[in-house]
Amino acid sequence: MQQNTNDWALITGASSPIGQQVAMHLGGLGYSLALLGFRHREAMDDLCTTLSNRNIRFATKQISLNTQASLDQVITWLDGLSIKPGVIAWLAASGVMRPVKELNMHHLGWTFQVSAFSLAIITARLAPRKLIVISSTGATRVVENYGALGAAKSALETMLRYLAVELAPNTSVFGIRAGLVETSAAHRLPDFDTLRTSVLSRTPMGRLVTPADIAKLVGLLASEDLEMLTGSILDLDGGLRLVL
């Protein structure tokens, strides 16, 4: 479904492998893109080059979403460019991968602020037509050394449900709970190769989720009239959740 090119999509975590795929897919559907990223400056530069070559309109800002001041800066930046996003694709996530016994308040505070709390502030201020939140299997299942991020993703899903109620009927809110995606972040998990083999052996579709899989589902949710699905979290895991 081709969009009006005046329709903007705000993408957080845009410099990540998944964020890059989401940006290129939404850009291909006709959306103009407001891209937020913090790390991976080179990846963001490469993404901008690709978007420019495809004549996709975009604006970028490098910022961490861990303080009220930084969130205010995002709103000011968007206002200054007269951008009112019709769609928000929320991929922002940051945190340490350690056992819970090795976490401190700084680790947890940072992880929750970037991965969950900032979603509430930004979305409530912008009130987009569509909000699409990327979660992970770690929100409901235990993954070694994923305690901080898993708990933050669980909080993210809870916030999604509250936003779906409080922003209705003008905003439709959807979640995507993605299974194991083979990205650089996943490779930081302990014994990734063993985990990968285990997941593949129990996944009916016989492969891992890819960033392109997530991007296609984001595009579908962003472009189609699915308002009665609001508040739902869709499992994108190739059927892994079905198998003991």
Rank of each mutant, 00 (worst) to 15 (best):
M1K: 14
Q3V: 01
N4M: 00
N6D: 01
N6A: 01
D7I: 01
Q20L: 14
Q20H: 05
Q20C: 15
Q20T: 11
A23Y: 00
A23F: 01
H25P: 14
L26A: 12
L26P: 10
G28H: 10
L29D: 06
Y31L: 15
L33S: 09
R39D: 14
R41K: 12
R41P: 15
D46C: 09
T50R: 13
L51D: 03
S52L: 10
S52F: 06
N53I: 01
N55H: 11
F58T: 01
F58Q: 02
A59E: 00
A59G: 03
I63S: 07
S64E: 15
S64V: 13
S64P: 03
L65N: 00
Q68Y: 15
Q68H: 15
A69V: 13
A69N: 15
L71H: 00
Q73V: 04
V74C: 12
W77N: 05
L78A: 02
D79M: 07
I83Q: 11
P85Q: 11
G86I: 09
G86L: 10
I88A: 06
A92G: 08
M97Q: 12
K101T: 09
K101M: 12
E102Q: 15
M105Y: 10
H106W: 11
G109F: 07
W110F: 08
T111E: 05
Q113A: 14
A116E: 00
F117E: 13
S118K: 03
I122C: 02
A124N: 14
P128V: 04
K130Q: 14
L131M: 10
I134N: 00
T137F: 06
T140F: 11
R141D: 09
Y146M: 05
Y146R: 03
A148L: 06
L149R: 00
A152I: 04
S154Q: 10
S154L: 08
L156S: 01
E157P: 07
E157T: 06
Y162E: 02
L163N: 05
L163D: 07
L167R: 15
A168V: 10
N170R: 08
I176Q: 04
G179R: 08
G179M: 09
E182D: 15
A186C: 13
H187N: 11
H187K: 14
P190C: 06
D191V: 04
F192H: 14
R196I: 03
T197R: 11
T197E: 15
S198Y: 10
V199Y: 13
S201V: 05
S201C: 05
R202N: 15
R207S: 04
L208N: 08
L208G: 06
T210R: 03
K216R: 09
G219T: 07
E224G: 03
E224I: 01
D225I: 07
L226A: 07
T230Y: 04
T230Q: 03
I233E: 01
L236I: 08
R241A: 13
L244G: 09
